[in-house]
């Protein structure tokens, strides 16, 4: 199976942050250094399970210049297919694992004159390192953070301690929500960043669009693949003449991998472009965030980790 180059780390501490969230500190062997990273970066973690390797992405919440350790925060998700469950239930201090180098699909805008972060729940994690970076550079920002309650609010203490002036909390238990109305008040030059559940992101992205925000001022981070609205099974036909069936519960990438095809991939959420494959015929339903609109409209390539067929069949250029 395709695997990127990785770093070997050991869990050196585990902190119960809230009822559902644990923070893990990852250390590299003595004498070695972890790479520095930029605000908003994440790593892939590789978990060995009896069923095979589980790859999950988590934002780095430690200081970008700290080369001695990384920190991630993991929320136990009810719908978990295993990733967060393993982190919460099986991982112990002293355990070793492989992680990727830091990657950033959610970088701070360089052009922005002011940054506004909108977070819901565990969506707070990428903003921790972004706020650190902006503070170091002396740039202005504000944080609007929605959570169920103070007890369920990860990093509450850390944020109030370090960024009290910039931060605003909204607890649904107190009937407080972040109004999208806020978007109306940002001055020209502001960039907005959304991270949280799909519905939260969609809601804010739409509000920004309706106001006429240019696309480039609106940034969003997803850790789960986008929810597909029209999922249906389809067939993939290969150069060799073989046909592969993709059912509604699996991604096309997973189907190809299961059939032993050596398709490279990395993010699995349609962000990095690594899994791109050429398509000869068939209607493609693009769900990625990588290809440009023109490239999507050309209908001649697909990112199979998220995208699917609109037609019953895709004819592919691969063997």
């Amino acid at each position: 199976m395709y695997k990127e180059s990785t770093l070997s780390v050991q869990i050196s501490s585990i902190v119960q942050e809230t009822e559902h969230v644990k923070r893990f500190t990852l250390e590299i062997a003595k004498g070695k250094q972890l790479p520095r990273f930029s605000g908003g970066s994440h790593i892939s973690t590789y978990l060995e399970t009896p069923k095979g390797l589980l790859v999950r992405q988590y934002s780095l919440t430690s200081h970008p210049d700290d080369c001695s350790h990384y920190e991630i925060a993991v929320r136990l998700s009810e719908a978990s297919k295993g990733g967060s469950r393993i982190w919460h239930q099986s991982m112990k201090v002293g355990d070793h694992l492989q992680i990727s180098y830091p990657k950033n699909h959610f970088p701070l805008s360089f052009k922005a004159r002011h940054h506004v972060f909108y977070a819901a729940g565990i969506g707070i994690t990428p903003f921790i390192s972004m706020m650190q970076e902006l503070r170091d550079k002396g740039q202005t920002f504000e944080l609007h953070y929605a959570s169920k309650s103070k007890q369920y609010c990860s990093f509450y203490e850390f944020i109030t301690q370090h960024y009290s002036e910039q931060s605003h909390f909204y607890f649904s238990e107190d009937n407080h929500r972040i109004p999208t109305l806020f978007l109306e008040n940002h001055l020209v030059g502001t960039h907005v960043y959304f991270c949280g559940p799909e519905t939260f992101i969609e809601h804010f992205v739409k509000a920004a669009k309706d106001l006429g925000y240019p696309k480039k001022s609106v940034h969003q981070e997803r850790f789960s693949p986008p929810q597909l609205k029209r999922v249906k099974p389809f067939k993939v036909s290969l150069k060799s003449g073989n046909e592969i069936w993709v059912d509604e519960k699996q991604s096309m990438l997973d189907a190809l991998l299961q059939h032993g095809l050596n398709v490279p991939y990395s993010c699995k959420v349609g962000r990095c472009g690594t899994c791109e494959l050429p398509v000869i015929t068939g209607d493609i339903d693009h769900f990625d965030f990588f290809l440009s609109e023109d490239q999507q409209n050309a209908q001649n390539c697909i990112l199979p980790c998220v995208s699917r067929a609109k037609s019953d069949k895709l004819v592919m250029e691969i063997k």
């Binding site: 978007l183 109306e184 008040n185 940002h186 001055l187 020209v188 502001t190 920004a208 106001l211 006429g212 925000y213 001022s217």
Partner: peptide
């Protein structure tokens, strides 16, 4: 004048 405008201004 331009600085005091809100996002969404063209």
């Amino acid at each position: 004048f331009l600085k005091s405008q809100k996002m969404g201004t063209f």
